[in-house]
Nucleic acid binder design. Sequence first.
DNA 1: GGCATTTTGTATCAATAGATGTAAAAAGAA
DNA 2: TTCTTTTTACATCTATTGATACAAAATGCC
Lengths: 194, 194
Amino acid sequence: MARPVEFVYEDVLTNAMEQFWREGFEASSVQKLLDVTGINRGTLYNSFGDKDTFFKSCLEHYNKLVDKELSATLNNEELAPWAAIEKYFDVTVMATTNKRRSMGCLLVNSFCESINYNKDIQKLVKAYYSNIRKALLKRLKDAEKAGELNKSVNAELATDVLMNALSGLRVHSREGKPAKQLGEIIQFTISSLR
Amino acid sequence: MARPVEFVYEDVLTNAMEQFWREGFEASSVQKLLDVTGINRGTLYNSFGDKDTFFKSCLEHYNKLVDKELSATLNNEELAPWAAIEKYFDVTVMATTNKRRSMGCLLVNSFCESINYNKDIQKLVKAYYSNIRKALLKRLKDAEKAGELNKSVNAELATDVLMNALSGLRVHSREGKPAKQLGEIIQFTISSLR
DNA sequence: GGCATTTTGTATCAATAGATGTAAAAAGAA
DNA sequence: TTCTTTTTACATCTATTGATACAAAATGCC
């Protein structure tokens, strides 16, 4: 049999993802990726392909993290619509205080970076981000049916408002705004919708 | 006397600014900047300094555009507080439909890019962005004094909510969301505050 | 132990990055 | 015309970019 793999696949993806997350695609040279992952060039190109492909894998890895959060909150059917929504935003706001604070959101960052000229990656980023929107929309439609939505909006508009606030939140967390203020912004936005 | 300058200073700044705006700092190589401005290397380094310095000049140029918009809207004392605020967001939403559509905001894009590791530029971006916040806060304090602000918020929180919505707007305009939907998001957000 | 297979480590590639130096060009002044 | 000054144009520098090739190393199978 062949020589066994020495690196831990998950760890490499996590470290590379954080590098792209922190500094963006363009500023993350292959050398930096080698430094933060600890693997060497041969291993990277053999096991993860070129930089574009590697970035896509990191996006996928990031999406898994998002999916976990969604499963515990928005997609958790044990929670009532608004409870689920509030929990999702609580988690998101709280996340800005840990070590990944001030890094914002890899997907939002990618929207704003030049990555947009790569149609391939752009589509991927949009698709991943739309997962959050879908989960949110579902719950807001539930709330609407239950008469728990502010009569002046429909579920679609309410979703847009919350997604817009979410994107703003991600930008401002990267800008360094304290979680307390971010929380108050979201709290008000939510209260205006119910 | 010396040889006269051939390039138009304003035009060079405008074209370079749009390049940075579209593709970000890292992806905008000096060669690309030469291509879009039409000047050559010597001229660029002689008249605009290195890439960092050039970028700062472009940020300043961008800020002038922002200032013009602010003067006509938020800082226009002839308009009542909420009229000024509504006009500012109208202009901002409408701007997403012209040729600069889908480019978002240079300042927000810069927050999200790796530029953040350059403390110097980061401070500049923050300072320019805070100009908008200051103008907004002033008007919301006026509205608060006049009893035209929703009692459940103070001027500070209202400003945060609107700035958050603004940042979200910029992200989503870059993502390609239609102006109509962006307008409805803002319209609801404003109405929730008055 | 020798063989096949895969990973790892390193050397190296051409292309491009940002940046600088210098000579030619263009104007008015003397 | 000649001189001075500044811009412009081009050549060139070193470092780094993403990417590839290939030998050394490490395993299980025979």
